[in-house]
Design a protein around this nucleic acid. Structure first.
Lengths: 135, 135
DNA sequence: TTACATGCAAATGGTTTGCAAACAT
DNA sequence: ATGTTTGCAAACCATTTGCATGTAA
């Protein structure tokens, strides 16, 4: 974890209040669920905070994404969510679906030559293959 | 285009027959629709071959993906489809949704250090930002 | 000739919306 | 006190499935 859970919550609560949103127990519960495990599906998150209504989980994830606290991932199957703490990329096993992260960004800025006039704001890299268990 | 449309169709028909599938007029129509424009949504494809039933378009795209002729893209919004002719990546404008391609792969293989034992088979890179029109 | 493909209608499943009640500040 | 948030039920929409009919090889 890049920051402690306590620090994460403080920062997130600050961002919510700063945006005119309230820091409710449901939102905190979703936040804690997200802190326990990266790239979970919505159902996995829901298992970790079963008292929060389905709709509220959806809306909370939308809100946290807007605030830049959460990233929504689309890695082949359905949507997955992770705390947007640090810059990293994903490695997906095509056999078992296992997802892992790598922190070293393999992009060579010198070779990133976007279309004339395009302003780069962010990027993502996904590596597909076979994990050690599935080879 | 990396190959002519005629060549594309010959190759695709060959792959279909080789896989025990039939080269039907509907499948050819979808293939031609795909050749007219990269990364279309299903609805856009459907407009280009309105006589092919919705379900058949879905099933044809599945088949062509299996055969490696088509790539299914998930670039934020819904699914989009493109002919998998060459290796390239995508640049997406966060303002207007415009998608463009760049052929030079910005990955530095030396910096691609996957988890121990992971066998890399493919990768994708997406660059998000603002296109020239939206700046 | 025959297994494969098509297309309609219906089912499905994930996500969003309307609205009344509950709540944070 | 007030505007925000919650949660249920219902609506929604893209995608998939069942099945009878049609067709490429």
């Amino acid at each position: 974890m890049a920051v402690s859970r306590r620090e994460l919550e403080l920062v997130a609560v600050g961002k919510m209040r700063g945006g005119g949103y309230k820091a409710t127990p449901q939102r905190t519960a979703v936040l804690r669920a997200l802190a326990e495990q990266q790239h979970q599906s919505l159902e996995e998150i829901r298992v970790r905070c079963p008292d929060v209504g389905l709709v509220t989980v959806y809306r909370t994830l939308d809100l946290l994404s807007e605030l830049g606290i959460v990233r929504r991932l689309h890695l082949g199957d359905g949507a997955r969510y992770e705390l947007a703490e640090d810059h990293h990329h994903h490695m997906i096993c095509e056999s078992c679906g296992y997802i892992s992260e790598f922190d070293q960004c393999p992009l060579d800025p010198g070779r990133l030559t976007p279309e004339e006039g395009f302003e780069v704001r962010s990027h993502s890299v996904e590596v597909y293959g076979r994990c050690a268990c599935c080879r």
